[in-house]
Amino acid sequence: MATVRISTPLRKLTNGQEEVKAEGATIGAVLADLEKNFPGIKERLCDESGQVRRFVNIFANEEDIRFLANLDTPVKDSDEISIVPAIAGGAG
């Protein structure tokens, strides 16, 4: 299973966990697995059409999936996936 790093604003959905494990051969499948274990998380990350929201960045091993194959980006068990809002810091 891949490791998924969860940013602070989403941790209330993962019971405070900073890292969780998720199954799936693609990023899309990983997100579906996350939704199974942490209901409500997918709606935060994806819009009504299923695409990743514009202000959410998902990195597969530090590469932005927008520059890979998006939700079809393949995932291996050893991969580290990070879900991060596309903003820096808090209120400046």
Binding site: P9, L10, R54, F55, V56, P85, I87, G90, A91, G92
Partner: peptide
């Protein structure tokens, strides 16, 4: 509207 947001500088 939500803790996870992209409105930089604003606070939920």
């Amino acid at each position: 509207e939500d803790a996870l947001h992209g409105l930089e500088g604003l606070k939920h």
